[in-house]
């Protein structure tokens, strides 16, 4: 049983690694063949699918782990503030930091003064 378990872990680890690494090798060879190093050489669907995956991950990550009116409102507020700070500063770290702080403060106060 233990051996089967470890074989499974190794198969999953190896399979996951190959799914991360092999497509890169394929694309690098394709770019080399065409002696180009730009995104223009990539199929359009691939350049769209990448950002679309990020958007999909954004969508799923917005759902709070414990769903309630409070956590949804805090999520909306945190996201709005994050977007606002990004628009103002155009940086990565600060909008995330302030967004998390606003989300945390909203949850904290909502728990102190619950609206029922």
């Amino acid at each position: 049983m233990i051996n089967t378990l470890w074989l499974a872990i190794i198969a999953i680890a190896l399979g996951t690694y190959l799914m991360r690494a092999l497509p890169l090798v394929w694309m690098t060879r394709k770019l080399d063949k065409n002696k180009s190093n730009t995104t223009e050489e990539m199929p359009i669907w691939l350049t769209v699918l990448g950002p679309a995956m990020i958007a999909a991950m954004f969508g799923t990550s917005l759902i709070p782990s414990s769903q309630s009116i409070t956590t949804w409102l805090a999520t909306a507020l945190g996201a709005l503030v994050t977007a606002g700070i990004w628009y103002w500063k155009r940086s990565l770290g600060l909008p995330v930091l302030i967004g998390v702080m606003i989300y945390g403060i909203s949850i904290y106060f909502a728990r102190l003064y619950p609206i029922y």
Binding site: A79, Y87, G99
Partner: peptide, 12 residues
């Protein structure tokens, strides 16, 4: 919440 905030900033 750092995760959706990060994705948002990357997509913006």
């Amino acid at each position: 919440f750092a995760l959706p905030a990060l994705f948002l900033v990357l997509l913006a």
